[in-house]
Amino acid sequence: MFWNNVETKPYGGYPIAWDARLLELLGPQTWEGGTYTGKTIFESAPEGHVAVGFLPEDLDWVHPNIGEDETSGLAERGMHLTIPHAIWNFYLPRICNHCSYPACLASCPRKAIYKRPEDGIVLIDQQRCRGYRECVRNCPYKKTLYNTVTRVSEKCIGCFPLVEQGRQTQCIINCIGKIRMAGWIHQPNKMDPESPVDFMVHVRKVALPLYPQFGLMMNVYYIPPVHVPLPYLQQMFGPHTERALNAYRQVKDDEELMGVFLLMGATDRWIEKFRVKSGWAFGYDDKGSEIVRVPLKEPNYIRPFHDAARSVYRHNIT
């Protein structure tokens, strides 16, 4: 079971077609400007249920890499690089979104799922779960998973033991592309511009939730890929996608945003506040002590051909 999985869009999914199937069940998802006028999964609940959902079949889970690296179409002679790409794909890493209105929590008739007040991490009580899998049916992102051996359901735990120690989660720490960051998010009217996630989501508005129309107010935000055609992205990230892409395109002239991006993967510790000053980005803990500093432009070091200290010549240092 993959509490964190990375799937290739457009054809990948773990489980297979988890999003396409629910979008179809949900029916038309209409927007008026920035306001969603369709139904959430709770409002679309069929009789006797709390949300609309489906239980994936066994075989939907057995190909986590289906569609990996597949492009949206075939390459044709004469194609060249454009933005957006004529044929495209992108990788979508997914974890439990620790939603503010979790469908899993609402679905459990035994209240075996709870959301921690101290950090918002959503957990399945392993003593209380009886493997009914109502949460598996109703989580739109299919991030509650049934354990074949223990016959109860499990999910991403938000690495809460690490979070309690002031560190980021394992999936974030280990991302070699350094494209992930954990941080605190607040409601828009209470946002802290010094919190890196509040800054990206509420100030620069460069990051968006995935399928907001489901209505769960998820707490994982994505910076949409600029090379993918807008209609596809709008289906996933909503009507503010273009604004997010424009903010992203400004980053070379936006030192603050550049600084936040460079703080991603710079430390395994949780960055409570950040600041960008004099060509450097600084990350601070909750006490205001500096955790990490990253230069906005990596300095160039020119080493002489002969290393006198070691009496060797430097070769192949391209």
Partner: peptide
Amino acid sequence: YMVGWSVGNPLSQP
């Protein structure tokens, strides 16, 4: 890593 078993959930006892 078989947490249901470790914490004594009756459903998970082999």
